[in-house]
């Protein structure tokens, strides 16, 4: 135990080495400097991280990945809580909760971030529920389809996108009408989240019409997601009025998964979305997962019942895949 004074303050770029060291001690795994910079310094929606520092050592952190969310006719911010921790030597001192409270004071509020959310492990959920006012949005289910033999090449009409442009926002605008709140899936966000990810390789599958207009986008990655080595639909941006585009992109993702040798394709879709039923009609089945989607709202409109019925999110809104 150290007797040095603890300062609770926003994260600084110079904290990198110390925060990564604490991360390694807490989680038993290393986060690379490239991953850390991508998450906390290069996110186009900004940085959300507060630390407790003792001397020059980070002993606790409460952090989030913010995203620009379109809701109520304006751009606001929801933020996914990630990498929140306290050093094993300093547990029980209340530092973690104090750091979290400073974070909420700075970032949460009706005129600031509207919602903080996450998919915590059980121990973190118990603490979050008791001390940090988190609530459950839903027990998260997944839609999964075992892959039967079939084509392993992306079908005609779908291309693998190496870059995204302003058409991403046009597509998002065509989807967003039925969504009460959703991360703005424009080129800037898609580029940061998928194309510039320092570790994971995502495949962006785009369906275009004859004029070259982007009609749908699916993001695929082979990953362990509840079960090992699945084909994961990490993102799904298809207007519900265009089921034929969805069918084409599902076929493309399935082909990609077959090419990867994945036994099944898995997706997350809100139960209120027409896609939840369409995927089932296409052979997907609803499976339980170990994930609980949780949130803390800072505006009364965004209570859990509302989020459950109106918030569109995808695995790509998490750091799980």
């Amino acid at each position: 135990m150290s007797g040095a004074k603890v300062e609770i303050r926003p994260l600084r770029a110079a904290d990198e080495a110390s925060v990564l060291g604490t991360f390694r001690e807490v989680f038993g795994a290393a986060r690379t400097p490239a991953e850390w910079r991508w998450a906390f310094l290069r996110n186009p929606a900004g940085t959300r991280a507060w630390v407790a520092v003792e001397g020059d050592r980070v002993v606790a952190q409460y952090a989030a990945l913010p995203s620009r969310v379109w809701t109520g006719g304006e751009d606001r911010v929801f933020a996914q809580i990630v990498d929140s921790m306290s050093h094993p030597d300093r547990r029980g001192a209340g530092l973690f909760v104090r750091t979290a409270e400073a974070f909420f004071d700075a970032h949460g509020g009706p005129d600031r971030d509207l919602v903080h959310f996450g998919w915590p492990v059980e121990r973190a959920w118990r603490l979050g529920r008791r001390k940090l006012r988190y609530e459950a949005v839903r027990t998260q289910v997944a839609l999964a389809r075992e892959l039967e033999p079939g084509p392993d090449a992306v079908p005609a009409g779908v291309e693998v996108l190496a870059e995204v442009d302003e058409q991403a926002r046009w597509l998002y605008d065509r989807c967003v009408g039925a969504w009460g709140a959703s991360t703005v899936r424009d080129a800037e966000w898609l580029r940061w989240r998928y194309l510039e990810h320092p570790t994971h390789r995502y495949v962006l599958l785009g369906a275009r019409d004859a004029a070259g207009v982007l009609r749908g986008l699916a993001v695929y990655r082979r990953a362990s997601f509840g079960l090992p080595d699945l084909g994961v639909l990490v993102d799904w941006l298809v207007p519900p009025e265009e089921p034929e585009v969805g069918e084409l992109l599902r076929a493309a993702a399935a082909a990609r998964a077959r090419a990867d040798g994945a036994p099944a394709l898995v997706a997350w879709l809100p139960e209120w979305s027409p896609w939840f039923d369409r995927f089932q009609r296409d052979g997907f089945r609803v499976h339980p997962t170990d994930y609980l989607t949780v949130a803390r709202n800072f505006h009364p409109r965004y209570r859990m019942e509302w989020l459950r019925a109106h918030w569109w999110y995808q695995p790509g809104d998490s750091d799980l895949v």
């Binding site: 139960e271 939840f276 039923d277 009609r281 609803v286 339980p288």
Partner: peptide, 17 residues
């Protein structure tokens, strides 16, 4: 959705909502 019947019923034609 964790019950043993959940998946067999889907295989038998049920969907979830």
């Amino acid at each position: 959705e964790t019950a043993p019947e959940w998946l067999p019923l889907q295989r038998a034609g049920f969907r979830a909502r």
